[in-house]
Design a protein around this nucleic acid. Structure first.
Lengths: 229, 229
DNA sequence: ATAAAAAGCGAGCGTTCGCTCGCTTTTTTG
DNA sequence: CAAAAAAGCGAGCGAACGCTCGCTTTTTAT
């Protein structure tokens, strides 16, 4: 699978996910018509990510958001009850999308090494298709209230644990040489995250996500072939 | 060299660097006695990093900083003329320390592969000794005014270029197999940065900076030994 | 076409922000 | 030890913040 195929399925799933977010926050969104609510939520989320990723969520004022969306202050507050709740909605939407896409992408494959390659590649593809979301979640995680921050950390550790388990399976199947799989998974995650954290750098070098995925997988497999000392 | 040896030399150099910062901002710091000025600048910088790394620099108020340092609002403003200048001073101090330590650590070594290992290891050691500074610089870079942000990006690219050049030398000397050295350097930098960005994770796993450095260097050398496809 | 319902609006509220300045306390000088 | 210089203090300023609510405009139902 290449990135182009992947992006279509993500775009297709997006409107469903906005509807779910609306269903999940019935007390906050006062707008009745679903079509209107979905359209404006998209505008709000897109504008919030754009502004917040430039100056930080704390520094983004609701007047900034009003200007960026073209909506008034009062209209904005029909979609969330406080700035803090907007933050929670953004984080939650991001986590649920990530979880769903990764799960459905892996359940078809059986071979351990193929599953490992797919996990790394899908994670990169998803972070490419939703770069503002991943950047935002990473940068704002520490400003969350304790309960939300815990969820964020658990989500991150779960991803890393997935890499680790797939590597352990690959070692058991003889596809990789024995290594400290937890450390290998941690280093892999760092390389994957760099793709969306330093996008300006990679874009400036005209590197595509497919090329980057090849390089990361190359590094993972090289590490798993050489004998540790 | 291990981390313990390294830390001593860094701590020793610190007071010198505070004096340089004072000399560099004579218009901002109104306090005359150098000893007093250095002592309070240390308090202010340490408190600012602590508070800002928890809630973000934008969300840190000067009343927070007053409480954390035990100094009054008026006293704080004897050391900087605006919150924005405090930010610039922190970034500048961080850059000058990094540049100096890295330069003086590399000029003794000759062998390309040894220089590469030293560069990675020293970078990790320095980020360990000054973790709050590195975390702060990374997280707040995008909130800087354009001129400062440019300096920050150049500093980062310079570090990566150093890795790349050392890898190119190592390939020329036959110590590493031919690869895309710029990509290899980029991936290496991502792994190095993860050490100070996700310190809570590594600390929870009781991993020392020496162990982490071994793992990163292991990955670099494995990547440089296997043949790319 | 007209009334009812829904959505959108933005001036204004209380609060908190970055920052100042007249004053007090501490330290240095002669 | 007194006078001068330096350092420290915190109430208060204008500006900008998150958020509300009475009102207007647009859409839907009859």
């Amino acid at each position: 699978m290449t990135y182009r195929d992947f992006k279509k399925s993500v775009d297709q799933a997006k409107s469903d996910l906005y509807r779910e977010t609306l269903a999940r926050h019935p007390e906050a969104v006062r707008v009745k018509k679903e079509a209107t609510a979905v359209r404006n939520l998209e505008r709000i989320f897109a504008a919030a990510l754009k502004v917040a990723n430039e100056k930080g969520f704390a520094a983004m004022t609701l007047r900034d958001l009003s200007a960026a969306t073209g909506m008034s202050m009062g209209a904005l507050y029909a979609y969330f009850s406080s700035k803090e709740e907007l933050l929670a909605m953004l984080q939650e939407q991001h986590r649920s999308v990530t979880r769903r896409i990764l799960e459905q992408a892996l359940d078809r494959r059986r071979d351990p090494m193929e599953r490992l390659r797919a996990a790394v590649r899908i994670h990169l593809y998803l972070s490419e298709a939703m770069q503002p979301w991943f950047f935002f979640a990473y940068m704002e995680a520490r400003h969350l209230p304790a309960a939300e921050r815990k969820k964020s950390m658990e989500s991150e550790l779960a991803t890393e644990k997935l890499f680790e388990d797939l590597m352990t399976e690959a070692v058991a199947a003889g596809a990789l040489a024995p290594r400290d799989c937890r450390m290998a998974a941690s280093l892999t995650k760092a390389m994957v995250q760099d793709w969306y954290l330093k996008r300006w750098k990679h874009a400036g070098r005209r590197i595509t996500v497919d090329q980057y995925a090849d390089a990361v997988l190359d590094a993972v497999e090289s590490y798993g072939k050489a004998t540790g000392h």
